[in-house]
Design a binder for these strands. Structure first.
Length: 451
RNA sequence: GUCCCCGUCGUCCAGAGGCCCAGGACGUGGCCCUUUCAAGGCUAAAACACGGGUUCGAAUCCCGUCGGGGACGCCA
């Protein structure tokens, strides 16, 4: 029997990293064993569910590269995959239970009759877990408005859809005995359960809307690569048993096992996510990088269609300089700006440090003349600048720092000479001359630094 | 309060009785490189919650304590 797994989000909120990671584990297991991954929308709470949330969840999964074999938009043999469209099925199941005395009416709602005894199930990550049924109240399975509750609908659907493995959050452990009892009441064999630990915020508090439980699509906006987030999430609460960490989807699929899931909660560590992202950024092909970067450059007003044609080679060279110093795509856009446009303002700290000497203007003017005459390549530019510094009796660093400020307006950039070559002689000379004319620049009162 | 789960460096993951005076990664400190910031190289600090057992031997098994998390809805 090939395994069938499902991810069953409720569209009462967006897809955050916790849900995404649960979906990912289900997906990994299904792919590992040639099984089927089902997406089912649990929208029985009509008040709080919304279509926007549904499409947001689908978009989030697609962005992460988690595809589903059955579910919304793709259909499947057990359609519909929205619980709100399966109400008749639940009502029929409930009356079946009532007719057999397994459930009873209570003020218009239907409650399940919990038998005495102990309910035990084997959890793939925790081992055997048992509950005294005395702690399970006769829970409601059909509300007085005719809508099923979660407990009823999950079980009915998991039976109908032939789900063999239920991989879900730890917070469902205490619901599981209720579900096991329902499976038994319906004469069905319960699926295998695997409860995965929850993801916590940096403060070790459970992720909530107020606590970093942002939509995974927000990570896209913040400049993370889907493969990086995927890799990072896969290793949160699960380990391969080896020291390997940078693993492709294929490798992750190949190595995934339920018993590799750890039992304790895991803290979401943004620093490590950034590191993963950096690693994936470095591995990206030039074309893939450009494709990922495009929306960010458009947003920054720096995109040119020529990047696909005449300026492509130039773009690739610039990106090569930026890659090692960017963790996220958003930083690329920021660092990319000086390669396209002249600075409109100069870092005040930088001005104070590198442009406030009485002879700064003279140095810059001399430098402008120097680069105007220099051959336009990294080696010559550096040699000529150093020669100029020596002739003027100053350290090369003085000219280098001043030049960086003049050309980028900032104190931080890629190596000066590599950068100058790509920015181009005309733009460089223009920027140097313009700054020389503006010097001395007003320096903010140093009191500002003490605030 | 009751029930359930969990407890190895700050964080994530290794470790399933001797291979561990505990390994890798992120982060942090130092050094090197250096025109800035990164990247890179080298290096350092950093953990088996505590107390009892079991055993020749325990991070690994058992019990208790403490701590963390979760669930106790006509939410999912």
């Amino acid at each position: 029997m090939t395994p069938r797994l499902r991810f069953a989000p409720s569209p009462t909120g967006y897809l955050h990293v916790g849900g995404a990671r649960t979906a990912l584990f289900n997906w990994l297991y299904a792919r590992r064993h040639g099984g089927t991954f089902v997406l089912r929308i649990e929208d029985t709470d009509t008040q709080r569910s919304s279509d926007d949330m549904v499409s947001g969840i689908l978009d989030g999964l697609r962005w992460l590269g988690i595809d589903w074999d059955e579910g919304p938009e793709v259909g499947g043999p057990h359609a519909p995959y929205f619980q709100s469209q399966r109400l008749d099925r639940y009502r029929a199941a409930v009356s079946d239970l009532v007719s057999r005395g397994c459930a009873y009416e209570d003020d218009g709602a239907i409650r399940f009759r919990v038998p005495q005894g102990t309910t035990t199930f084997h959890d793939e990550v925790h081992g055997p877990i048992s509950f005294d049924n005395a702690h399970l109240e006769s829970f409601v399975i059909l509300r007085s408005d005719g809508h099923p509750t979660y407990h009823l609908s999950v079980v009915v659907d998991d039976i109908d859809m032939g789900i063999t493995h239920v991989v879900r959050g730890d917070d469902h452990i205490s619901n599981t005995p209720k579900h096991v009892l329902l499976f038994e009441a319906f004469g069905a064999t319960p699926p295998r359960f695997a409860h995965v630990p929850l993801i916590m915020g940096a403060d070790k508090k459970r992720l909530s809307k107020r606590h970093g439980a942002t939509s995974v699509l927000e990570y896209e906006r913040q400049g993370y690569l889907p493969d990086a987030l995927f890799n990072f999430l896969a290793l949160l609460g699960w380990g391969t048993g080896t020291d390997d960490e940078l693993l492709s989807r294929e490798e992750l699929v190949q190595r995934f096992t339920l018993d590799g899931i750890s039992g304790g909660n895991a803290v979401f560590n943004t620093d490590k996510l950034d590191w993963f992202n950096h690693q994936y950024l470095l591995k990206l092909s030039d074309d893939a990088l450009v494709a990922h970067l495009r929306p960010f450059l458009i947003e920054a007003g720096l995109w040119r269609d020529a990047f696909h044609s005449t300026d492509h080679a130039w773009l690739v060279q610039v990106l090569a300089l930026l890659r090692p110093r960017a963790q996220r795509l958003t930083e690329f856009a920021t660092q990319f700006r000086p390669f396209c446009v002249a600075p409109t303002e100069y870092d005040t700290e930088g001005v104070r440090k590198h442009l406030s000497a009485s002879d700064s203007a003279a140095h810059i003017t001399a430098l402008a003349a120097c680069v105007t005459a220099s051959a336009w390549n990294v080696e010559t530019l550096e040699r000529d600048l150093r020669a100029l510094a020596e002739a003027r009796g100053i350290k090369a660093a003085v000219l280098i720092h001043a030049a960086r400020l003049a050309v980028t307006g900032r104190m931080v950039s890629p190596g000066l000479f590599d950068m100058l070559v790509l920015i181009g002689r005309n733009a460089v000379v223009t920027r140097l001359q313009r700054l020389a004319r503006q010097l001395p620049l007003p320096v903010a009162p140093s009191a500002a630094a003490h605030e």
